[in-house]
């Protein structure tokens, strides 16, 4: 079993719990954050092999989290940060890349199988 740690940042409860179930089922150690502030605190603790970070979030959006991480990084280094998005809107994705994101997943256009495959790919990087 893969004991790598994944943090899921997603405000929609159903989607959050879905990713949690999907990834726990695949054997990952999963934690969740429902809003931007909780997310930033958990990312700053560090030690995540993968962070799935939604862009539109209450309290602090995904891009602001990336900006804040630039000024104060995590206590323990993190692995990959992959943005979760609903829209394939290039400008926001490009901004995320410039702010240090490693990739993105378009939630609505992917099968759960594809999501798992992508996540495996990112964890191998």
């Amino acid at each position: 079993m893969d004991k790598r740690k994944v943090l899921i940042v997603e405000d929609d409860q159903f989607l959050r719990e879905f990713y949690q179930e999907l990834l726990s089922g695949a054997g990952y150690i999963v934690d969740v954050a429902p809003d931007g502030e909780t997310a930033l605190a958990k990312i700053r603790q560090g030690g995540w092999n993968l962070v799935l970070l939604d862009i539109m979030l209450p309290k602090k959006d995904g891009l602001s989290i990336l900006k804040d991480l630039k000024t104060q990084g995590p206590a323990v280094p993190n692995g990959q940060i992959v943005m979760l998005t609903n829209l394939g809107n290039d400008t926001i994705i490009n901004q995320a890349f410039l702010l240090g994101a490693n990739g993105y997943l378009v939630k609505s256009s992917m099968n759960p199988d594809d999501v798992l495959n992508e996540i495996k790919n990112y964890l191998q990087k």
């Binding site: 539109m56 609903n86 829209l87 759960p112």
Partner: peptide, 18 residues
Amino acid sequence: ASHELRTPMTAIRSYAWM
């Protein structure tokens, strides 16, 4: 609207798949 529509649609699709 399309963003807001997609969140529940993605949830329906994901759970149907599950």
